[in-house]
């Protein structure tokens, strides 16, 4: 039996920029290695594929020990925006594309992008609210059927 990973399925459930990038970098990295990849956007992860919101994802400054700032200070007005600006600057230095361009790269690379039907209904979204490149809106059952093959891994982010 071959142990090679053939397909990676990511479930992005959070709207923070660091989580979105984690999913995008790994999904793109998979394609670059010749591995199939797909991302299922659910709950707050849907913000990363909403036309009006995807450019405004933020770093979590509260409840994030990795930021090394006290939670109360992290909660002050403007902290999130400041931390996000600094992180985006660092990302640009590493030639990391912004969210909209990254989604384009993923689509062009053959990575499939799916929205979760339940979350779309819950947030009262329509297909028009979501990026044009989206491959469709799926139920979790539909998504599992896409995982039904040997060498497939699912990752929840």
């Amino acid at each position: 039996m071959s142990t090679k990973v053939k397909k990676m399925l990511f479930i992005l459930s959070k709207a923070t920029i660091e989580n979105a990038y984690a999913a995008f970098v790994m999904a793109n990295g998979a394609r670059m290695e010749g591995i199939e990849s797909e991302i299922f956007f659910t709950f707050f992860g849907l913000e990363a594929i909403q036309k009006k919101k995807l450019e405004h994802l933020k770093v979590a400054t509260v409840g994030n020990p990795g930021m090394h700032i006290p939670t109360m200070i992290g909660g002050l007005p403007g902290m999130e925006a400041l931390a996000t600006k600094m992180m985006k600057k660092e990302m640009e230095k590493l030639d990391m594309p912004p969210i909209d361009e990254f989604l384009e790269i993923l689509t062009d690379s053959g990575c499939k992008l799916w929205a979760c039907k339940l979350a779309v209904d819950m947030f009262h979204l329509t297909r028009e609210d979501l990026i044009d490149d989206l491959d469709g809106i799926l139920t979790i059952g539909d998504f599992y059927s896409r995982a039904d093959q040997e060498g497939c891994q699912l990752l929840f982010i």
């Binding site: 670059m32 290695e33 010749g34 030639d95 594309p97 361009e101 384009e104 790269i105 062009d108 053959g110």
Partner: peptide
């Protein structure tokens, strides 16, 4: 200059879709 898939997109020589078609199974590699 370091190579990346973003660089390919901006190269003006080829787009990402064609790049994957020309070198299937890990295009940059």
């Amino acid at each position: 200059e370091p190579l990346s898939i973003r660089g390919i997109k901006k190269s003006g020589v080829i787009n990402i879709k064609e790049f994957y078609n020309l070198f299937p199974g890990g295009p940059l590699k």
